[in-house]
Design a protein around this nucleic acid. Structure first.
Lengths: 126, 126
DNA sequence: GTTTATGCAAATTCTTTGCAATACT
DNA sequence: AGTATTGCAAAGAATTTGCATAAAC
């Protein structure tokens, strides 16, 4: 797990992501764990877990931060271009490959992006 | 201009977007106009102008809100899927058509998205 | 004249900092 | 033992609210 120590806070936080198939907002995590971990610690641990590429974050349209432990995240550094798709039905978050954008943004040079697409995933549409 | 009244605040704000080819952050607008328009009013007018589809907003990776008056914005309602491309060199913001995403997100149903891609536009790359 | 917009001060919400105490390896 | 992590209280930053005043139609 990189530099991050195995502490009670780390375990409790990761446990929340194991219960969950999708993304969880910081606000939600604070509500769930408030009586066990201090709010400040929650912010700090999430930050580390993102540095260690165990979690990924993005902002929703209200500016609230969400974290997810999704397939493929470990392959990316946190500042990589990395779109997410969140199913509004089941809540699951998929990481989409960078490449989905590139053919459409030809002749532009992508430096960074923040992409959250919401909708219904294949299964929930069907 | 829809329901929005033509006031001093509206004119001053729109003037900033005429000076500018790209997006302007709320923070920047407050700095520029602080002595002329109250901060609260700036927030309220921007909100209205977005409702009227004159401006468009999106969040940067720090959660700060940016507004732009870009080609094509008037065709969209503010909750439409609507990616933006911001050139980090010249600051210009383009609206990209929804369609750039659709072929890549096949079998998913898009409800909303918040997309800001940053990089260099064609001219600044060249 | 009626409705909408504005300014101000205070309140909210989310996040960060400083520092002493504690837990990890 | 030495370093990283935690909790608490307080500070910060961005945005919103309530209400009386002023401006637009």
């Amino acid at each position: 797990m990189g530099i991050t120590r195995r502490t009670k806070s780390v375990d409790l936080l990761l446990a929340e992501f194991d219960k969950e198939s999708g993304a969880i907002s910081v606000i939600e995590l604070i509500e769930r764990l408030n009586y066990k971990i201090n709010k400040t610690t929650i912010y700090r641990v999430l930050d580390k877990l993102e540095d260690d590429a165990i979690l990924h974050s993005f902002l929703d349209s209200n500016g609230n931060k969400w974290y997810a432990k999704c397939e493929g995240c470990s392959k990316h550094r946190h500042y990589d271009v990395h779109p997410h798709f969140e199913c509004m039905d089941c809540g699951k978050v998929d990481c989409l490959p960078v490449e989905i954008l590139i053919p459409n943004i030809k002749n532009r040079q992508i430096e960074s992006s923040q992409i959250l697409i919401k909708g219904k995933c294949e299964e929930c549409v069907g």
